[in-house]
Write a protein that binds this DNA or RNA. Sequence first.
DNA 1: CAACGCCTATCTATCGCTTGGTAGGTGAGG
DNA 2: CCTCACCTACCAAGCGATAGATAGGCGTTG
Lengths: 187, 187
Amino acid sequence: MGSASREAILAAAKRAAQAHGYGGLNFRDLAVEVGIKAASIYYHFPSKADLGVAVARRYWEDTAADLDAMLVETPDPAACLRRYPEMFRRSLEAGNRLCLCSFMAAEYADLPEAVKREVQAFADINLAWLGKVLATAAVVQAEDSKSRAAAIFAAIAGAQLMARSRADISLYDALIEGYRAAGLLPA
Amino acid sequence: MGSASREAILAAAKRAAQAHGYGGLNFRDLAVEVGIKAASIYYHFPSKADLGVAVARRYWEDTAADLDAMLVETPDPAACLRRYPEMFRRSLEAGNRLCLCSFMAAEYADLPEAVKREVQAFADINLAWLGKVLATAAVVQAEDSKSRAAAIFAAIAGAQLMARSRADISLYDALIEGYRAAGLLPA
DNA sequence: CAACGCCTATCTATCGCTTGGTAGGTGAGG
DNA sequence: CCTCACCTACCAAGCGATAGATAGGCGTTG
């Protein structure tokens, strides 16, 4: 498992993927960033698709851990829900980057099947977490928590999209505030 | 202006861009689809960036016309607003394609500046139209119509994103319905 | 009328570059 | 000595782009 180089490759690939997508990911630039030669990446990952799968898997694993940690840090479900947009804000802060989930939608037609599956796991985790928190916070009736979770997730992804294409984090904040004012997110 | 070949290239490029993005657009495949040789495209467009600009410009011009037509067809602003999600639904219907605006967000770091400008014009037109219709429909107070327009636009783009990455139009419909239930869109 | 010059729209052929991927070698450490 | 981790040196395919040629149409002018 995780040697130092392997971890460095994974981290650099994640950063690159969140800036340029899977298609924009390339072994030469990646190698320069890690400080090794491009061919050496093949020692750790047999193909680009495998690297993509590994990046996406690590991505949702980290997200799952972060969401769990947030629930521990902020046990009140309503307060926790209020903090949820922070997750998507962070990648904008880190160099105007995007959620891999949004890249998957854009690159849907050209993405290896296995990569798609891992990225969808990211979405599933978010939806499950949101559904759970919405239900315990009782902001919607129990039977509506799933559909509200999906609406919130989609809307927040959209807000991140808009903010990126204007390179303006304050737009993200304004959109989230707009969702609260409109009633999509609890005020 | 618009010779037959030029129009055919423009139409094929639009379709390709909505499926694969600007980066996924390539002259060889495009030429095959149009039925000419790749080099011949350069007679009509001096560079890929110029083609991208032309596609994006045509895209927002068509959208502006469609939005205007919708207001003529459905003069009642509330009814018109209800029909707005149809616009984004159509590209999903047409081969699970995406709005160019979402592609711009994904390809933000690698897109020629001139292309970005044209795609942003698409967003601006949508925002202006939504703002106007929201104000006349009086679904929000006049001073909130701009921020609500932005919230709706972002959320609908997000819904399109989610539906594409699941290749499931019914998910789009469900998300729009979710926005109505939550109060983001008028019920 | 016919010859000429020019434009349009396309072709073939190729260039320089980047990409993902491979084969085989090399040095350090247990 | 052998395995791990990395290297050098490639390759084939694909990319945007360019050069130069050609076939046909259209208008002007001797």
